[in-house]
Design a protein around this nucleic acid. Sequence first.
DNA 1: ATGAAAGCGCTAACAA
DNA 2: TTGTTAGCGCTTTCAT
Lengths: 341, 341
Amino acid sequence: MRPIPSSARSSRKVTSVDVARHAGVSQSTVSLVLSGKAPGRVSAATADAVRDAARELGYRPNAAARALRSGSAQAVGLVVSDVTHPFFGPTLRGAQRAAFDAGHVVVLIDDNYGAGWGDTTVERLREGAVDGFVFFAADPPASLRRPGAPPIVLVESERPRMPYVRLDVETGTELLLDHLTELGHRRIGYVQSAVVGQTFTRRHDRWAQRLRTLGEDPADQVVVSSLFNADAAIAAGDALLDQLDRLTAVICDDDFLASGVLAAAARRGIAVPRELSVCGFDDVAISRLVTPPLTTIRFDAGDLGAAAFELLLARLQGRRAPNRVMPCELRVRESTGPARA
Amino acid sequence: MRPIPSSARSSRKVTSVDVARHAGVSQSTVSLVLSGKAPGRVSAATADAVRDAARELGYRPNAAARALRSGSAQAVGLVVSDVTHPFFGPTLRGAQRAAFDAGHVVVLIDDNYGAGWGDTTVERLREGAVDGFVFFAADPPASLRRPGAPPIVLVESERPRMPYVRLDVETGTELLLDHLTELGHRRIGYVQSAVVGQTFTRRHDRWAQRLRTLGEDPADQVVVSSLFNADAAIAAGDALLDQLDRLTAVICDDDFLASGVLAAAARRGIAVPRELSVCGFDDVAISRLVTPPLTTIRFDAGDLGAAAFELLLARLQGRRAPNRVMPCELRVRESTGPARA
DNA sequence: ATGAAAGCGCTAACAA
DNA sequence: TTGTTAGCGCTTTCAT
């Protein structure tokens, strides 16, 4: 082990050439060792010497150079419409764990419901910085839907010929409806997401279909819609409660929206579930913090995120993997009860 | 305008060489034009020709090559301990807007309260993919605190010799305490964040100091702490309410924590604010969704995020810019009222 | 006003 | 098992 030249300790950038010189080997050997391709090609002793030299010099590979040369950044982008949507945290963590296991890093891009800088960021990242994208309840920009674009996978949305992972929201909706009808509800309102999305359409369709089998006309039910912010959610709740005589229960596209109904009901002194049963969807943290705690649909968000990454990884490797539909289950809490007479 | 060679329309990667050839100019001219350094150096006609060629061929610059050559990726990383913390959305948007105005993109890194893959991601991004970082209520890894590390700025935390942007939480805490004392409260409990952080310490110190001026011993007050998840927040609320006879009001490090107190109170049938006044902090969306809506402290999160980016940009440009302390204001809602007798 | 040429730091054929 | 060499696509002197 040679002494460390003082220059190496300075702030000058340490390159693989420096490591090679310090270890007394060639640059390609350094590359082989540090990118884990050494076994069977480089002797153990040499490999150790290289690693030691790298550590001593504080060498860190330059990601840009590596990406440029190898054509892969070992990084993926996760695009979401709103990072703060609570639905999203556990899912992200699942994707991160899976990515990490595969030696990739994941960066997040918030596109603010399509109103933000998501597209620009995606454009700038797609060449060089990131190998592929997963779009989480967000729409891929047109430029990524053309041939030659990097691989992408969709979560909770679908497009022809694009790989996706989604929740079995049809079953989720059925579960909620089973639960409500067992409690005697037949006139069931709906609080819809004003943000359009396949997942919401599926739920709504299933709700409509089910009401028909109950002999109710979906068109006669109270339906309101709301964006995902507190004011809108409460206003939607108010609009719904204005017609309380026309329903005994309501299902909502999301726990956040359901919380808006709860807030509006509390302000009017309407008792939940005695006068109205309220269902959410997603089982996010807030669903246990509101009063009463929400009956909702839960699923394994970590699995969802991991599955999305697996699918993307398959594409990156030129493999083909089947789309996934993840299961949901019912979580009964105190926001639902027998239909009022 | 020459016809587009069919090969250019194929999925083969289009490089600046292709653009140069197509426009009949040299590669350096293309570079000059497309990176906005043309004025005064390239004739307008040539510049237009280059831009046309680029558009026709669907050229997109390779970020890795650019970063490698120029040493700058025009990208910054925003590291947060929990992307889904609602506090965080508007702040991020502010940072994004400022970054975008300066021609930078921002990628998010979730480090899951230090338990995740944040450090690895930061390590991998720092060379090549990203020029600098802002750490949002997250601790920078040791490797970034050494000379030669990329510039970083801290939000809502501080370290010696590191630029920061923070909220004036001292004033925020005072405002809350003013409000409560005017309502006749003197025994004021505290729900602390179990996640340590300078910002929380400051608030707690101010609370303790203020109680002393009221002639109360802070050590005699009910203090509980909680992580930022629903179960913990409700459990903390329960622990607090077990000692309801020892307080008439409580201030919480965060709206989420305050919501936990509300949820616990609702389960026990304790009326807020009649039997207990509850204050939050941050004025996130949830504060209006819970019952009753929370009295809390609000601030301009967009400004906070923008200020953080500005500071980072200054560092990237070798400028020095002053740290910032952003103002807070009181938001009175229905969770606070006169102290019970 | 434009072009030629060098080279950022790395990986991967290909040689030895 | 290891070294030599040739670029990846771009920006940037330096000539012209």
